[in-house]
Structures are given as C-alpha cells and as structure tokens.
C-alpha cells in the first residue's frame, strides 16, 4: 500500500462528497413547494414571499445558492433547522452517533451468527446445516426490514412480552435497559447482512477448500483442524470485509426504516422527520452524513484488505 494509493483514495472520497452534495442539492432544491411558501404558508402576499426569498437567498443563481450552502457545510455549519430553529449539525451528529452504535452492534451480531453458519454450511455441503443456511439467506434478502421488525415486535414484545416494543434508552446511562431496547432493532438490521455474508462465505470456503494449497496442506499430513483454521479460514474470511463494507450502504437504508419503527432518535428517523416537515437543511445534512459514512467505511475496508492480503499491492 503506497502513499500514492492512499492519496488517490482520499481524492476519490473528496470527489464522492462533491458528487453527493451536488445530487442532494439538486434533488432537494427541486422540491415543489419552495422554502418561502413553506414558511409563510399558502396565503402569504407576493411581496412578503419576495422579501423572504431575498432574505433566504433564494433569488440568487443556482450555483451561488449551492456555494452558499456547501462552503459553510465544509466548515461543519449546515445551517438552522426550519423545524426546530436550532443548528442542524450538532443535532444530526448526535443522531448519527446513535445510528452508528446501532449499525456497529448489528455488524457484530451478524459476524457472530454468519461466520460459523457460513463455514458449517460449506463444510457440510448439502447437509441439514447447509439447508438451514440456504433458507436463512433467502429469507434474509427477501424480507424487508419493516416486515421483519413488525414480526419481531408481535412475537417478542406483544405476545411474549420479553422485550420493550419501542423507544430508546442510552446504553451509556442505563446499560441493561438500553440494551433491552436495542435487541429487536439490532436483530432486524443484522438479518439482511447475515444472509449476504453466509452466502458469500459459503461459496468462498468451498472454493478455497478445493484449491491447490489446501490440497498441499492436507498432503503434508496436517490435521484437518489446522488446515481449516490456519489455512482456509484466513483466505475465506478476507472477502467478508468487502461485503460488509458494501453492505453499509444497505444497512444505512435499513436503519432509516428500523429507527422509524422502533422510535430510535438516530439519523434515519431524523431524515424521515425532516422529509415530512420539508426541513431542507436537515435533509441535506443527513443525506451528506450518510453518504460520507459509506465512503469512509469503504476506504477503511480497502485499507484493511490491503494490510491483511499480502497478495494485493495497490500502486
């Protein structure tokens, strides 16, 4: 991994954020009801509307509006929320941190389930565990989060009463209660990823086990356990990093729905509220933060991949 490669990769992130900001700006500024009408209501006089448009800078050319939005945003200032009249950036960052905790917990849970399941499915090909793994991976990619979440709510909160239905308690403040509130959302988000990773890990392990160096390790007389854990697992697990990183985009989408259902004050719920109340600065900040998270996670995964896989030399 050379310095040049890292520089190029950082440049690409900058480019990604430029593209994302232009796309987000273009879509949100095309909102049918313009901001002035929204604030003053439909019965506002044309004079009042024009005055407010001038005050908000909506009469300026589009590129100037973009610049007036993106330049402060680069300095961490995303403007004032139209709904709460508070600065957008601190509120959105606090929401993002809760979402990241949710996502991290989901990824951890996913690894705990998917890695053993994927390996067992590959080693016991066409056996009962393989069948279960196949079932889990098809159900995981075929059940939208809102269906899984609602089913889990019915079963574990309503029928069995084991877990609270909705709401958020900070685990930093009340550990047990906080974790209890997070179980169902985390399971929901993890399920889709389990499906992706089990599938990938199964086929990857089957490929690796059929490779020459595994044959060589067997022929050397190494015990099967050593061959599996020291030789095969290492190479089969590498692509998991990439799949998880690419899944982050999917997870962030799923988090929007899950937070909405379980009433978790994360960035997804903040975005839905912002969209419903047409709170432009919050929509823009939330979308940029989500895309930024995706870009950064993918950079980190590329770096991890390069460090772990000695065959890869990024020039």
């Amino acid at each position: 991994m050379s310095l040049l490669w890292l520089m190029r990769r950082l440049l690409l992130i900058a480019y990604t954020m430029i593209v994302v900001s232009v796309v987000v700006f273009a879509i949100t500024e095309a909102l049918p009801a313009d901001a002035a009408t929204m604030i003053l209501g439909q019965n506002a006089t044309p004079a009042a509307l024009a005055a407010l448009r001038a005050r908000l800078g909506l009469d300026a050319p589009v590129w100037l509006q973009y610049w007036r939005w993106v330049w402060p945003a680069l300095h961490g200032n995303f403007g004032i929320s139209m709904r709460t009249n508070l600065p957008v950036a601190p509120a959105m960052l606090a929401a993002l941190s809760r979402s990241l905790m949710l996502a991290a917990a989901a990824i951890l849970l996913m690894l705990l389930i998917a890695v053993p399941l994927g390996l067992a499915a590959a080693l016991g090909r066409s056996g009962p565990i393989d069948l279960i793994a196949g079932l889990v991976s098809y159900l995981g990619v075929s059940l939208p989060e809102f269906v899984t979440a609602t089913m889990l709510l019915i079963l574990f909160a309503d029928r069995l009463g084991w877990l609270p239905a909705t709401g958020y308690v900070s685990p930093a403040r009340h550990l047990v209660d906080g974790v209890r509130h997070l179980v169902l959302p985390v399971v929901t988000v993890a399920l889709v990823m389990v499906a992706h990773v089990v599938r990938m890990l199964r086929s990857e392990t089957i490929d690796v086990m059929a490779s020459d160096y595994i044959r060589a390790a067997h022929l050397k007389g190494l015990p099967p356990r050593v061959v599996l854990f020291r030789h095969a697992l290492r190479n089969a697990l590498l692509p998991v990093i990439t799949v998880v990183a690419l899944d982050v985009g999917y997870v962030l989408g799923g988090i929007i729905v899950v937070e909405q259902i379980f009433a978790i004050p994360g960035i997804g719920r903040a975005l839905i509220v912002a969209i419903q109340s047409r709170d432009l600065p919050s929509i823009q900040a939330g979308a940029l933060m989500m895309a930024g998270t995706y870009a950064v996670v993918n950079l980190l995964s590329d770096i991890a991949y390069a460090l772990l896989d000695k065959r890869i030399r990024y020039e």
């Binding site: 990604t16 954020m17 994302v20 985009g249 999917y250 929007i256 989500m290 895309a291 995706y294």
Partner: peptide, 8 residues
C-alpha cells in the same frame, strides 16, 4: 460516488 447514497 452515486452509490454512496443508499438506494432507499
């Protein structure tokens, strides 16, 4: 870059 925005 576009793919950094989740589909949903």
């Amino acid at each position: 870059a576009m793919m950094a925005i989740p589909a949903l």
